[in-house]
Computed example of a mutant assay.
Amino acid sequence: MASLNNASWSSGLCGCFDDVGGCCLTFFCPCVVFGRIAEIVDMGATSCCASGTVYAALASMTGMGCLYSCGYRSRLREQYRLKETPCGDCCVHWFCEACALCQEYRELKSRGFDMALGWQANMEKMGKTMAPQTHAGMTR
């Protein structure tokens, strides 16, 4: 049976020369890169700060930030119907965490996202409107 996910990634797993700035940010501050990816993939449902903090806590206390981040790679692939290459999402993150985060960051940038802006500002920049977010307990 043919896979529904057959689109190619915009760059390879080891394509850091395509975005040296993003790779440096990933090397020095992977929690920031992951937080930005998570906010875009979750379409603003989670904040960059919250996701990055959870990632940093997991990575520093257990060394297992990759178990959290691999789920976002799977979501990203599903959203854009990307191939699961070069191997499974968890394997990519387990063995090449920094390369995986860099590739995901580049992928979202290649799709028009300004990663420093976050979800809401990107939607405004792209001219897309979103329904106002309601929060529990807010009434008029």
Rank of each mutant, 00 (worst) to 15 (best):
residue 2 A to P: 15
residue 3 S to Y: 13
residue 3 S to D: 14
residue 3 S to E: 11
residue 4 L to Y: 14
residue 5 N to Q: 11
residue 10 S to Q: 13
residue 10 S to I: 10
residue 10 S to F: 12
residue 12 G to M: 06
residue 14 C to V: 11
residue 14 C to Q: 14
residue 16 C to T: 00
residue 17 F to R: 09
residue 18 D to G: 11
residue 18 D to A: 13
residue 19 D to E: 05
residue 21 G to Y: 05
residue 21 G to P: 13
residue 21 G to T: 06
residue 21 G to W: 11
residue 24 C to Y: 02
residue 25 L to C: 01
residue 25 L to F: 09
residue 29 C to R: 01
residue 33 V to K: 07
residue 34 F to Q: 00
residue 35 G to L: 06
residue 35 G to I: 01
residue 35 G to A: 00
residue 36 R to L: 06
residue 37 I to T: 02
residue 38 A to K: 05
residue 41 V to D: 03
residue 41 V to I: 03
residue 43 M to Y: 01
residue 43 M to S: 04
residue 44 G to S: 11
residue 44 G to L: 08
residue 46 T to H: 08
residue 46 T to M: 01
residue 46 T to Q: 10
residue 47 S to G: 05
residue 48 C to R: 02
residue 49 C to F: 07
residue 50 A to Q: 11
residue 50 A to N: 12
residue 53 T to I: 01
residue 56 A to K: 04
residue 57 A to N: 07
residue 58 L to C: 08
residue 58 L to D: 04
residue 60 S to A: 14
residue 61 M to Y: 13
residue 63 G to D: 13
residue 63 G to T: 13
residue 65 G to H: 14
residue 68 Y to W: 08
residue 70 C to G: 09
residue 71 G to R: 08
residue 73 R to V: 05
residue 74 S to I: 03
residue 75 R to G: 09
residue 76 L to D: 10
residue 77 R to C: 08
residue 77 R to L: 06
residue 77 R to Q: 06
residue 79 Q to S: 03
residue 83 K to W: 04
residue 84 E to Y: 01
residue 84 E to W: 02
residue 87 C to Y: 04
residue 89 D to C: 14
residue 93 H to M: 07
residue 96 C to S: 13
residue 99 C to P: 10
residue 100 A to C: 10
residue 101 L to Q: 07
residue 101 L to Y: 05
residue 103 Q to T: 12
residue 104 E to R: 03
residue 105 Y to T: 12
residue 106 R to F: 09
residue 107 E to N: 15
residue 107 E to V: 12
residue 107 E to F: 14
residue 107 E to G: 15
residue 108 L to F: 13
residue 108 L to E: 12
residue 110 S to R: 08
residue 111 R to L: 13
residue 112 G to K: 11
residue 116 A to E: 15
residue 118 G to V: 06
residue 119 W to I: 00
residue 122 N to V: 04
residue 126 M to Y: 09
residue 127 G to T: 03
residue 127 G to V: 14
residue 129 T to N: 07
residue 129 T to A: 14
residue 130 M to I: 12
residue 132 P to L: 05
residue 132 P to R: 02
residue 133 Q to W: 03
residue 134 T to I: 08
residue 135 H to R: 04
residue 136 A to M: 04
residue 136 A to Q: 00
residue 140 R to H: 09
